[in-house]
Design a protein around this nucleic acid. Sequence first.
DNA 1: CACAAGTCTGCAGTCGCTGCAAAGTTGCAG
DNA 2: CTGCAACTTTGCAGCGACTGCAGACTTGTG
Lengths: 201, 201
Amino acid sequence: MTTQAAEGLRDRKKRQTRTALGQAAVRLVAEHGLDHVTVEDISAAADVSPRTFFNYFASKEDAVLGPDPEAGARMRARVLAQPADLSAAAAVREALLAEVAAELADDREHWLLRMRVVQQHPVLLARVFSGGEAVERELVAGIAERVGLPADDTYPLLLGAAAGAAFRVAVTRWSSTAAPLHELLAEALDLIAAGLADPPR
Amino acid sequence: MTTQAAEGLRDRKKRQTRTALGQAAVRLVAEHGLDHVTVEDISAAADVSPRTFFNYFASKEDAVLGPDPEAGARMRARVLAQPADLSAAAAVREALLAEVAAELADDREHWLLRMRVVQQHPVLLARVFSGGEAVERELVAGIAERVGLPADDTYPLLLGAAAGAAFRVAVTRWSSTAAPLHELLAEALDLIAAGLADPPR
DNA sequence: CACAAGTCTGCAGTCGCTGCAAAGTTGCAG
DNA sequence: CTGCAACTTTGCAGCGACTGCAGACTTGTG
């Protein structure tokens, strides 16, 4: 998120390089498509050697998605911070909406562009939220803690996976409508909370 | 599923090669782990050239997962075949349970081994069911048709994604319990149908 | 200023994956 | 059963992702 004040030259440079790579990746992929952009291109645009690219990201896809290692911890904290009278599902709903809002407020341009890239490359969709990623695992841990169940119980796993599904669907739909993302996300989460009952005709 | 009677030598050989590759892939990966097995190893075990491997599967992962191009159509048909008085969510529930039962009955050994491999390699988990795969898209199409909504409406997309999530969670849990898969799957689907309400303490 | 620790880079190599064209098989019509 | 058309297999050449290693360079510290 926002940059810490007390950090040396070294760390600042690292951060700069990382975001330079991430932004170059998103921009180039948006322009030319995922597999018309090589790691070499991205590195060149960020003015580092291709080898250095892999010191920052494990794969080309990671550079586009900008993993954000703190996102998991944030989601976990958000879930636990919701009022105690909310059900777990409602807490996850609020946490997710808040996270998306915060993310959008922080980095708007880059985030929008990234989402646009993702919806053009479904390969990436699976990795955005769910898929054994650290984010979902942390979220599941938060849910488990909140409801007092082990993290490998069906309920937390499922609520976490369902939240991921709602998020992906919202992003997917977002590409084909004019509606703002948070509305689509809220709609999806509500549908799930209603047990996916048949929609009104 | 079961092999057609009327097919020439040519097609039979193709089918044989495909399953030989698939089985070799699963077996070797189960023994040595996903990235200690090369495409060359798999091809050698199936007694074809590495180049031929790629005439059958687009990637090493595909060989392990054995995409089954008909699975999507089957799921779609199953959803539409459920009694009309069932809600869409219930129809999906029955369809999924039936598919899993049929799959297990058909190919038991190979399927069990494959699932075991998957749970050891979370990278594969994302691709098993969901993730922009053809299966989920067909399922969504079936749901959409059943409820009379366009296939890019939130409801069908979400129900399809939720079914995928339930499936993945069931497989995940399956690895750490003694319970049969269909029970875990039913439990997960029921939880979703209940709107993921807080579990009883 | 010197030294430890960390970072960047080039190099060499493995593996996944693709296009192409030659060689081998199978299906079929005559 | 022969010869041709259609299809499959294979080798080859090549790109690009990704990794380990070791040396050069930079930054933090006493």
